[in-house]
Design a binder for these strands. Structure first.
Lengths: 243, 243
DNA sequence: CTGATAACTTGACGTCGCTAACTTAGCGCC
DNA sequence: GGCGCTAAGTTAGCGACGTCAAGTTATCAG
């Protein structure tokens, strides 16, 4: 099963010990994608590279460190995908929407990596300068900046955009996570994409709308009276852009 | 570490073989809550009940079946919590909001169970009449019914409420899942609760608003022009109930 | 040519999920 | 009241896992 490479692997030269590190990382990600998290074994990774098992521990503290490295790469890829999706979009709200769609798209096309990144048993990264947490923070900061641009345009009316960012992130993550977990069993890819678009638009529009409600809304719940809410929203429908 | 009980456990009588089954299940959940998923070992569970390890396999096919049983109980508890929260609330939108809050609350007070339920490595329950999937479906159906009541009142204007249900579920799940995963590191409980309330209200309001937008919105993205959106929303603010 | 040492390998420990084969306790039955 | 069937367990062990201690081999400075 765990195919050893044809070339028995030449030992690394004196200075280039990190070569194996890169190969191990690549093998880990390949194994993860091809056979799932359960198949990612220190033994299997080592075998795939063509090296003995304990050799892994010369370059990674433990199995967790190996997966952490994959997480780091995943954060970078996720950030890049979102950035690329928003590139050249002038309107900040539309740019934010595209970021959200790109997030879900990336998550669904990198399911195993996403699972390891955000659905793992426990990431007790108590270390404050943990590189994978830092990468996540950076990705979140980029999203916050995108939200901030919406605030500047008056789409969101909030003093601190970070809460809004988290809530939007939760909406996108919720879709990816639910689909990956298998809680939503039979669903075509097209349906999933439609759901993602819907959830993201809901979150975006909801954020814009929520900040325009009276301040005491938090205490009493927003619009206890559905009838009043319906009346208000119907009034809005006239005022919104139609095409 | 794995403390055996003081009473060495009397063997079950002839007919009551299921007694051990219940004890194993209880021990599993306790172990899960007290020491986390990693501590849930077939050996540890058996030791806690005071029985030999293979005895577990007389009542559960494998470790997965043991965890599945916990999942089943968790689904039931989650459903009950949502139902209790909505009980006696006449307004359907407010009832839906309370259901969402109860969902997040339950998830955060049953983190380990929630993790096992919806953040597990893989739930390849291909079996169509898998009881845990069925329980999830039942919980989802209840939520759909709550959404349907909002549709009847005109809060949501959709033909099929199931998509809306999934999107709302995703919003609530997203918050729980993000917090549990540790992606949002330092956060007080009060802040988390506030975030949850915000995310749920955003999703609910967004759903109500989205269905009032023109039909071609899906193709071109909703409100490409932020300025127009802002103008429309500000118009709305006047019409909405203020107190 | 020769050490020093970076880059590995061999072998093993303890724990895991799970199985096969054996043992013991309760109950119907003649 | 002893007998035998079988439900309800136990003992022993397999292969795979993460990880470590100690030994080995290849490379390069001198």
């Amino acid at each position: 099963m765990t195919t050893a490479p044809a070339t028995p692997r030449t030992r690394a030269r004196r200075g280039e010990g990190d070569r194996l590190r890169d190969e191990l990382l690549e093998a880990t990600e390949q194994l993860l994608v091809e056979a799932g998290e359960a198949a990612v074994t220190v033994r299997a990774v080592a075998a795939r590279v063509g090296v003995s098992t304990p050799a892994v521990y010369l370059h990674f503290a433990d199995k967790q460190a190996l997966l952490d490295a994959v997480c780091l790469a995943t954060w970078v890829g996720l950030s890049a995908a979102m950035r690329a999706a928003a590139e050249g979009i002038a309107d900040p709200f539309e740019a934010l929407r595209r970021r959200g769609l790109a997030y879900v798209q990336f998550g669904l096309t990198h399911r195993e990596q996403y699972r390891v990144l955000l659905m793992r048993p426990h990431v007790d990264c108590t270390d404050p300068d943990c590189p994978v947490l830092a990468a996540g923070q950076r990705a979140c900061d980029e999203l916050t900046a995108a939200v901030e641009r919406c605030v500047e345009q008056g789409v969101f009316r909030v003093a601190d955009p970070s809460d809004t960012t988290l809530a939007l992130w939760a909406a996108a993550h919720g879709v990816v996570s639910l689909v990956i977990s298998g809680a939503i069993p039979a669903m075509e890819r097209a349906d999933i994409d439609a759901l993602a678009a819907m959830a993201i638009e809901m979150a975006g529009l909801g954020a814009a709308l929520r900040t325009r409600l009276p301040d005491d809304a938090d205490d009493r719940g927003i619009c206890k009276d559905s009838a009043a809410l319906v009346a208000g929203l119907d009034l809005l429908a006239v005022g919104l852009p139609q095409g």
